[in-house]
């Protein structure tokens, strides 16, 4: 392995910092000073005036979907790992991943039936009155 010299990296690092300092310094020296005006604190200074707060309450369903996404997204990691080694694993691997997917399917059916996937009004299957 050939040892590549380190100094270009160091020069580059300092060059970047110097460039940033120069740009910031010049613009504050040369640029126009703006005083606090009526529209200064607006999000878009010369654009459309915003209405209301951006902190609107988000529906709980989004969180639920996000959680399902996190869980089911990760299962692909395992399935992908199995797919990569498909031929080496052979029949045993196939059976193992089938069990794995079966469990996922059962979980999905459960989620569906218990109304977690419904948007808006939950069906709430099988609740005692």
């Amino acid at each position: 392995m050939t040892e590549s010299p380190l100094w270009p990296l160091v020069v580059y690092f300092f060059a970047v910092i110097a460039l940033v300092l120069i740009i910031l310094g010049l613009s504050s020296l040369v640029g126009p000073r703006s005083t606090m005006q009526r529209a200064t604190i607006e999000p878009f200074e010369s654009g459309v005036v915003g209405i209301g707060s951006s902190q609107i309450p988000i529906s709980v369903e989004f969180y639920l979907i996000a959680m399902f996404f996190v869980i089911f997204d990760l299962e692909t990691v395992y399935i992908f790992a199995w797919a990569v080694a498909f031929f080496e694993l052979g029949l045993f691997g196939y059976l193992a991943i089938s069990v794995f997917i079966l469990i996922l399917v059962v979980a999905l059916i459960y989620e569906w039936k218990s109304g977690a996937l419904d948007w808006g009004v939950k069906k709430r299957v099988g609740l005692r009155e």
Binding site: M67, I71, D73, L74, Y78
Partner: peptide, 20 residues
């Protein structure tokens, strides 16, 4: 690492549920 990813997802999902 894959196992850790899974664990982290499970922990955080439950954590978010409790948080809600």
């Amino acid at each position: 690492f894959m196992i850790i990813l899974t664990i982290a997802a499970a922990e955080v999902s439950v954590g978010l549920g409790l948080l809600l």
